[in-house]
Simulated assay, not measured.
Amino acid sequence: MGARAVIGTVVVVGVLVGGAYVADGFARGEAEDRVAEELRTGLDGLDESPEVTIGGFPFITQYLAGRISTVNATAQEVTVDGVSLQDVVVDLEGVTTESPITAEDARMTAHVPLAGLLEAVDLPLEVAIVDGALTATAEVFGLPLDAELVPRAEGRSIGIDIETFTLAGATIAAEDLPAGISDQLDAIAIPLDGLPEGIELTEVVVDRDGFAVTATGSDVVLERATAG
C-alpha cells in the first residue's frame, strides 16, 4: 500500500472514530440531563436538578447493556424530613437504565448545619457547637446543667450520645441526675427516613457549624415510590 493510501486510510478511520466519540458524548450528555431530571422529580426534597456526570467509556454500550458503571451527582441542598442537607455529593455504581432507577452501590456525603437542624427538630436542650464540640445546656432545680454530646449514625437517623454531665460546675454520672432527665437526653434522635430506600447513615461527625454525614447502601432505589 502506497503512502497516499495509508494516509487516506488513517484519515477515514480518524473521521469514523471521531464521529463515534462525538455521538457517544452527545448520548452521554442527553442521559445525564435525563437522570438529573428524574432525580429531581423522583426524590423528595430536591427542588432543582442536580449536576450529573456519567463515567465510563463508551457510554452507548453501557446504555445498551442496561447498566451504567458510575454516576456522580451533586446538589447544593436537599431537604430530608425538614432537615437541610447541603453540599450533597452522591457516587453511584451499577446504575440501571430502566425505571425504577436503582444503584448496586451508593455513597453520599453532605453537611448538615446545626441551625437548620434545630429549626426542624424540637430538642429538649439548648444545643450549640463550642470549640469544635457539641454541647447542651439546661436548668435543673435552678442550677445550670451542661452536657457534652457526641453525634452518631443510627441507621436512618442521627443519634445523640451523652459524654459527660456537669451540674453547677461539678461532673456527675447520668444515674445521679433527677429522674427522667437522663432518659430524655438519651432519647435524642433526628430522623432522616426520607433518604432513598436502601441507604443508611454510616458516619456522623461534628464539622464546622454542624455535622458531616456519610451514608451508604446497596440496591438503592433512586425514584419516589408511586401509589398503586
Rank of each mutant, 00 (worst) to 15 (best):
L114D: 13
L143N: 03
P113I: 07
L145M: 04
L123Y: 10
L114V: 13
A138M: 09
D131N: 14
L114E: 11
L143Y: 03
T109P: 03
M108F: 01
P151Y: 02
P144C: 03
P144N: 06
E98A: 14
E148R: 15
A136H: 06
A136W: 03
V150N: 10
A128M: 09
P124Q: 11
M108G: 00
L123D: 08
A110W: 01
E139G: 01
I129D: 04
D131S: 14
A120Q: 05
T97G: 11
V112E: 06
A115R: 14
D105G: 12
T102A: 10
D131Q: 09
P144D: 00
T137F: 00
V130N: 03
R107T: 14
L118R: 14
F141L: 12
E98T: 15
V130I: 11
H111Y: 06
A147E: 01
A138G: 13
G132M: 03
L123F: 13
V130K: 06
G142Q: 08
F141M: 15
V150Q: 12
T102S: 14
G142C: 09
E98P: 04
S99T: 15
A120E: 09
G142K: 03
P144T: 02
V140R: 02
A115Q: 15
T135H: 08
A115Y: 06
L134V: 04
M108W: 01
E126Y: 04
E126Q: 15
A147I: 10
P144A: 03
A138W: 05
T109V: 12
D122A: 12
M108C: 02
R152W: 01
L145F: 04
A120G: 06
L118W: 09
P124A: 11
L117E: 12
E104P: 01
E126G: 05
A103D: 09
P113D: 08
L134Q: 02
A136K: 02
V140Y: 01
P151N: 04
L123R: 08
L114R: 10
V112F: 05
A110M: 08
H111R: 13
V127D: 12
D105V: 07
L145N: 02
G116T: 09
A147Q: 05
L117I: 08
T97Q: 11
V127N: 08
G142A: 04
T109S: 12
A106F: 00
E139V: 14
